[in-house]
Amino acid sequence: METQSKREILAASPLFDNLLPAELTMLAELFSLRDYAASDIVFNEGDVGDSVYVIAEGTVEVQRKTAQGKIAVIATLDAPQFFGEMSLIDKEYRSATIRAKTKTRLLQLTNENLHIFAKNYRNGFTWVVVNIARMLSSRLREVNRRLSEKS
């Protein structure tokens, strides 16, 4: 996939809101293309996580094991959503399993490649972190809202 095509996909992702064209160009070079067939596992819950993924094409399921050991689908994501960002921030193991629901094309950014971006574009990197923080914050607000509704 050409850098330009990758850049267009990244520009549509909320992960890269507010980034400048040059920053997106470098990110496009740092992202690697990964293709998955339907039912392929992208990563498993408990794996060591070192990458964030942006969905270019297709749909993935976010799965977690229940206390009874069953697999529960907790979310379905499609382009241009992203996943895997939590392990980049907290350095913990993967909190869920990601399985391709359809034939899926993902863009993968490793922690090492993100470091290159950070070295070259401090402000751009800050905005990526801010975007992740905003997204996590939004999720936290949503959880709080649901908890307050329940109580």
Binding site: L20, A22, T25, N120, N123
Partner: peptide
């Protein structure tokens, strides 16, 4: 470990990492 080089042609004129990045002001 390979790193891409900065594309000067695509740069926004050197203001990307400058302290007066307008994005930071809005933030």
């Amino acid at each position: 470990f390979i790193e891409p080089l900065l594309d000067r042609r695509d740069s926004d004129g050197g203001g990307a990492d400058s302290a007066d990045d307008p994005r930071l002001e809005s933030f």
